[in-house]
């Protein structure tokens, strides 16, 4: 395959270059994440109007939706990074894929828990087999599989490749799982009122939501970069530049 990529693509393959560039990017993303998440949650909690049907419990949306979106895109990123690592044998891509898994899993847990808490005032039960919650639960299981597989291999490179294959298999399956769960849900529950369906929102409601989503993405970038940096150090621990860093620590 002869595809020409821009220069940064090849530079990304160098662990040291990755380590240096992320150290410059990290503070900016951290500041952005902090500002956006504080503004978004204060706006969402105190200033956004209450939903006419759900009252104030609707304010959970400002955590639930961003984490749910993040959990899904994190899996996408993990599979794509794993695929890049498999095809072009780029070490940093595997590092990123490995760092994605625990973050994505924790976001899926948060989306599940907030969804369940949201369900209590609206459905009167802590858990309802709602299509979105069920798909999120399956996504969480997929994360668990990837994490378990990565850690089962003693040889790091094999664990990386195996996890990448599994993540790619998962990404093919996610749309099928989503579709089948949605179909199963309509079959068994009839037309229940879905809280987690985004209602038609006025701008005072969705602007803070948008801010929270971008904020969570920035926060995810911060976590991903810092996790990947430590992983890079761990894998490059025999090189001189890492030894120098360790001595200075």
């Amino acid at each position: 395959m002869k595809i020409k990529f821009p220069k940064w693509f090849y530079q990304l393959a160098s662990p040291r270059w990755f380590y240096d560039i992320t150290s410059k990017l990290l503070p900016w993303f951290a500041i952005a994440a902090l500002l956006l998440m504080v503004i978004g949650s204060v706006w969402g909690l105190a200033f956004a109007p209450a939903d006419y049907q759900q009252g104030n419990s609707f304010r959970i949306i400002y955590i639930h939706v961003p984490t749910a979106i993040l959990a899904q895109s994190c899996y996408m990123l993990m599979a794509i990074a794993g695929g890049i690592g498999l095809i072009w044998k780029i070490k940093v891509a595997h590092v990123i894929a490995k760092s994605c898994a625990p973050i994505g899993a924790s976001m899926a847990v948060l989306a599940l828990v907030t969804g369940a808490i949201w369900g209590k005032p609206t459905w009167g039960a802590w858990w309802v087999w709602d299509a979105r919650l069920t798909s999120m639960l399956v996504l969480f299981f997929l994360y668990i599989g990837v994490i378990a597989l990565t850690s089962a291999f003693e040889h790091i490179a094999s664990g990386d490749k195996a996890a990448a294959v599994l993540a790619l298999v998962g990404i093919v399956n996610i749309p099928i799982i989503k579709y089948s769960v949605e179909w199963w849900n309509t079959l068994h529950q009839g037309a229940t009122f879905k809280v987690t369906e985004k209602p038609a929102m006025p701008s005072e409601m969705w602007i803070p939501l948008l801010i929270m989503i971008i904020g969570f993405y920035c926060f995810f970038a911060v976590l991903l970069m810092s996790r990947a940096r430590t992983e890079v150090l761990r894998r490059e621990s025999k090189t001189d530049w890492v030894k120098l860093l360790v001595e200075r620590y």
Binding site: V138, F141, L142, I144, G145, A148, L149, A152, L166, V169, G170, N173, I176, I177, Y179, S180, V181, W183, W184, L187
Partner: peptide, 20 residues
């Protein structure tokens, strides 16, 4: 047990349509 963790979530669509 690891196989079950990897594979069971992927079995879900087949289970849903089969049982339905």
């Amino acid at each position: 047990i690891l196989i079950s963790l990897l594979v069971l979530p992927l079995y879900i669509p087949v289970l849903i349509f089969g049982a339905s």
